[in-house]
């Protein structure tokens, strides 16, 4: 962990000093243990404020949409999941690869603050870091050591690409890839009968507070103008009622079909824990079954399934 932090600061300082990049996107640290946030570094002397700890979860690549308007070249650090999101922006022709310098960070999983809280380890907590194979929780006067496996984000447990698939320079050795089955929760939902499943999603969408964090954080949601923001016509009504919430989530999920890189950021940022991962994965699973395996974000030059047409594509919906 400390070695990676040194590399991050060194590379950031180096590209700013040489003028190779005029902005570095990394992570900074707030006063509370879980606060690792996107940092915008433009001066070599500020690189000492960069951090790398088990909470550096935000994907930095979406900031390129704004920053590349004014910056010549942006250097940024990408974990495995972030790299998939970056590739999606590339495929959608929203970033210019030539203007970006990528440092890849192999990542063996980040820590979910909610799991720390549920385990009752949060009171008075100062910091959390990996040491050896253990997760060390530091308090004012003492430390607790735990097995990290019960604290990883769910999305990290099913991560298939912990090693970035796109980079200019990799900052560490590849980590082992050992994902749990990612469609398990979808499989459970599929077993329910239609009305039971409908009630489940009704309950989830009823909880939505319509903050749009899921859309705003999504690397596949990069439209300059979003259908849900249009006021004329007003496709999505502003009332928080079930039908509008369903319309929002289902429409968004379908717009993501074949483009969702399964980075899990939507579910992470959702303040009311709507299991958006299951919704997106259902579509990924269906697409895989209908049109063959496709892994969005891995090979951006490969055409996504819903952009291509093959005469042999299944079209049961046309025949009925």
């Amino acid at each position: 962990m400390k070695a990676m932090l040194q590399k991050i600061r060194k590379e950031a300082a180096s590209v700013l000093a040489s003028g190779e990049a005029d902005l570095v996107l990394g992570w900074g640290k707030g006063p509370l243990w879980w606060q690792s946030y996107p940092a915008f570094i433009e001066e070599e002397k500020e690189t000492g404020s960069l951090t790398w700890d088990p909470f550096c979860v935000p994907n930095l690549s979406k900031y390129l949409l704004e920053e590349l308007w004014v910056k010549q070249k942006v250097a940024l650090f990408l974990k495995g999941c972030d790299a998939l999101g970056f590739n999606q922006l590339l495929q959608d022709k929203r970033v210019d690869r030539e203007k970006v310098l990528i440092f890849g960070i192999p990542c063996s999983g980040l820590i979910d603050p909610q799991k720390v809280e549920r385990a009752g380890l949060h009171q008075g907590l100062h910091s959390v870091e990996h040491q050896g194979g253990e997760l060390v929780f530091s308090y004012k006067d003492d430390q607790k050591k735990e097995d990290p496996s019960s604290f990883y984000y769910d999305k990290c447990l099913t991560c298939r690409h912990p090693n970035p698939v796109v980079f200019d320079m990799m900052l560490g050795d590849a980590v082992a890839v050992n994902p749990q089955e990612r469609f398990a929760a979808v499989g459970e939902l599929e077993k329910q009968d239609v009305s039971e499943r409908y009630r489940y999603w009704e309950r989830q969408f009823s909880r939505c507070i319509r903050c749009f964090a899921c859309r705003n954080v999504c690397p596949a949601c990069s439209c300059r103008e979003c259908i849900f923001d249009l006021t004329d016509p007003r496709w999505l009504g502003k009332a928080n009622v079930l039908s509008e919430n369903q319309f929002y989530h289902i429409t968004r999920a379908f717009h993501m079909a074949g483009r969702c890189v399964d980075c899990g950021e939507c579910a992470r940022v959702c303040p009311v824990d709507i299991p958006l991962t299951s919704l997106n994965r259902k579509l990924i699973k269906d697409l895989n079954e209908l049109y063959g395996e496709y892994d969005a974000g891995v090979e951006p030059e490969k055409e996504p399934p819903l952009i291509t047409f093959n005469p042999g594509d299944p079209a049961a919906f046309l025949e009925s």
């Binding site: 940092a39 915008f40 900031y63 903050c211 964090a213 859309r215 954080v217 940022v269 303040p271």
Partner: peptide
């Protein structure tokens, strides 16, 4: 300037 640069522009803070 610096806070807004990282803000996602979502409504979580206002709605909670």
């Amino acid at each position: 300037e610096s806070l807004s640069r990282r803000c996602l522009g979502c409504g979580i803070c206002t709605y909670v």
